[in-house]
């Protein structure tokens, strides 16, 4: 009697073997569909807001690298119409002034980049310009980082988090990034 009832129970049980497959299917579905969206972008620190007008301190014109982007997405660098592809090289040359030219910055610590745009400027262009300027500094920081020994005979290959904080601070002290953004003109909107 006990034998038969046991057999009956076995027959009545739902086969749970495929449950694992179903769960696997779900798991794989979730694994595939969820894109771990890596959020990347250009990190910027905005200047604090102040009501008073910024005092146009007398800066030597040789120390200011003015970049104007107009509503037609054209670029005026130091009163010269420039292509965006040349911007990085020009900025680097201006900051470091390798040939000690009269009209470029006295030294990297005194270099100021002034960026101004119209309200009608496309965001795409603005970001590209910003990217190039940041890129110029990044390249300079990389160059600077290569001068520091990593230990042994090796040297750092680029400016990264690998470098100890004090050396990073030293590099940024030598070539500080000063980028001032003026209020945009309301042209083009």
């Amino acid at each position: 009697m006990g034998k038969t009832s046991a057999r009956d129970r076995m027959k009545n049980e739902v086969n749970a073997g495929s449950m694992a497959d179903i769960a696997f299917l779900l798991l794989i579905f979730f694994l595939v569909t969820t894109t771990i969206a890596e959020d990347k972008g250009i990190l910027v620190k905005l200047p604090p807001w102040s009501e008073e007008e910024v005092d146009p301190t007398k800066l030597k014109t040789r120390n200011v690298f003015s970049v104007l982007v107009n509503a037609d997405n054209q670029l005026l660098v130091r009163d010269e119409l420039t292509s965006i592809d040349d911007l990085r090289e020009r900025a680097k040359e201006f900051i470091m002034n390798p040939d000690k030219l009269e009209n470029l910055s006295e030294k990297p610590t005194k270099a100021i980049i002034s960026l101004k745009n119209d309200r009608g400027t496309e965001y795409k262009t603005y970001l590209k310009v910003y990217n190039e300027l940041l890129g110029a500094y990044n390249e300079l920081w990389n160059d600077e980082a290569r001068k520091y020994p990593k230990g042994g005979d090796t040297k750092y290959t680029e400016y990264s988090d690998e470098i100890p904080l004090d050396i990073r601070k030293e590099i940024k002290g030598k070539i500080p990034m000063v980028l001032s953004e003026a209020e945009p003109t309301s042209y083009g909107e």
């Binding site: 990347k40 250009i42 990190l43 620190k45 905005l46 604090p48 970001l127």
Partner: peptide, 18 residues
């Protein structure tokens, strides 16, 4: 941007693709 500055939110990330 101006509003963010006024609110004291100064860390900004311009999201962009590689």
């Amino acid at each position: 941007k101006t509003q963010l500055r006024k609110s004291g939110q100064l860390r900004v990330n311009y999201s962009s693709k590689k």
